[in-house]
Design a protein around this nucleic acid. Structure first.
Lengths: 227, 227
DNA sequence: TCAGCTATTGACCAATCGGTCGATAAGCAA
DNA sequence: TTGCTTATCGACCGATTGGTCAATAGCTGA
């Protein structure tokens, strides 16, 4: 075990000393992989250290314990997700329906490419009851933020008359709109890309259903006569 | 630890001998709780045994090892889920839209009540890559079956002209229709009943969106332009 | 009543884990 | 070059785990 054969390709001399600002992200990345593969309880500190090319003792030099390392891993992963969506919404001008389509398609495309976020979601879900603060963190930093974004678009569209008035009740509708993309991600994770429901087909059906179901009929006054 | 104080309320004499047909489900139920609370790796055989009011050794008398116990737990839980839906579909006569609404509402109501199925889904998701056969089992026995049920309704509705023709492309649409109810279940599990998106609101918005998005406009010839 | 089958126990083992700590050496400042 | 700081190692510990097995005792049929 003299040459580090973990992920740095070469034959780095063992015991290279690095600045904490450089070693810490190495450890976090290695720990993410370890936690993702074995789950919280199954993950081994020694194995995580080995993935980072260091020894277990060093991890305890940077993190007080396993639980703290886990939380640090989660926190280090959630930041960049929303920037894209928020920029898209802020910069968009045009029909709200097109904005909504863009958001949905963005979500599916991220699912298709970004693997780390899928893994992270699984981790949070699996360990939520053992780390209540983690569930609270997910709720505040991820779910609520996403719901607010989608809800804002829905209400704007309803206010402008472009969407049916029911779209304004975003409390129920926003999660319904987001769910299929998230489930697509989960299925990909569980079943692999081969056996999961087809991503492109879901994306198309999803956009289609949402636009047909939300956009106000062009000829007003003949909507749902109901009973 | 003389009187068993686990879940049988009374002061049963220690070491009661039971027929395997009676003890096995006890062990399976106890193991489900243990796995659900601590995850696969975190669960302890001794703790699962204690929950069942027996000792670890007895579990190894009934199951070859931890992995086998886990698989047996999963298998023992998935059977009764589909009977209800299949009965509903078979017995139903009337507009396909009403059948679809009934299925969606059934799904949400199960989410609200059945706790074991939520737990089970979480377990399968969390341990899918460690037990590939488990993912395959979920795919074959749960997801595919559910997709086939929903897809059948969609195609029937499209064939009868009640749904828009796009409904026939069930490969993408069926998972999109099922996803919100499943996500509702997952959110309930992660965040508790308090902080999750409101179940009743989601149910209403979901039904509303689906029916508006799928049902063929009543006046023909002016719905989808471009034949 | 009694003998036999087997459900059930409890003690045991090797392996592994999270965590601790003194020793070591890599880098930097002087 | 020298010396100090501290990143890094590796050996170690107590606790717990999955798994084994011989001994025991509850039930049932004769």
């Amino acid at each position: 075990m003299k040459p580090a054969e973990t992920e740095n390709g070469g034959t780095v001399p063992a015991r290279r000393r690095l600045a904490p600002a450089e070693r810490t992200p190495q450890i976090l990345a290695a720990a993410l992989e370890e936690f993702a593969e074995r789950g919280y309880a199954g993950a081994s500190m020694a194995a995580a250290a080995a993935r980072a090319g260091v020894t277990k003792g060093l991890i305890y030099h940077y993190f007080p314990g396993k639980a703290d390392l886990f939380k640090a891993v989660v926190r280090s992963c959630v930041q960049p997700v929303f920037n894209e969506a928020e920029r898209l919404i802020a910069a968009f001008e045009g029909p709200k329906a097109e904005l909504l389509r863009g958001l949905i398609e963005l979500a599916y495309d991220r699912v298709a490419t970004e693997r780390r976020e899928r893994i992270l979601f699984k981790l949070i879900l699996a360990e939520a009851d053992r780390f209540p603060e983690l569930a609270a963190f997910y709720n505040a930093e991820v779910l609520s933020r996403a719901l607010a974004l989608v809800g804002g678009v829905l209400r704007a569209g309803a206010a402008s008359g472009e969407f049916r008035p029911a779209a304004a009740e975003a409390a129920g509708l926003a999660p319904v709109l987001m769910a299929p993309a998230i489930m697509a991600s989960i299925w990909q994770m569980m079943l692999g890309e081969g056996r999961s429901p087809n991503l492109a087909a879901m994306r198309k059906a999803h956009v289609d259903l949402v636009l047909q179901g939300l956009v106000q009929a062009r000829a007003p006054g003949q909507g749902a006569p109901a009973a």
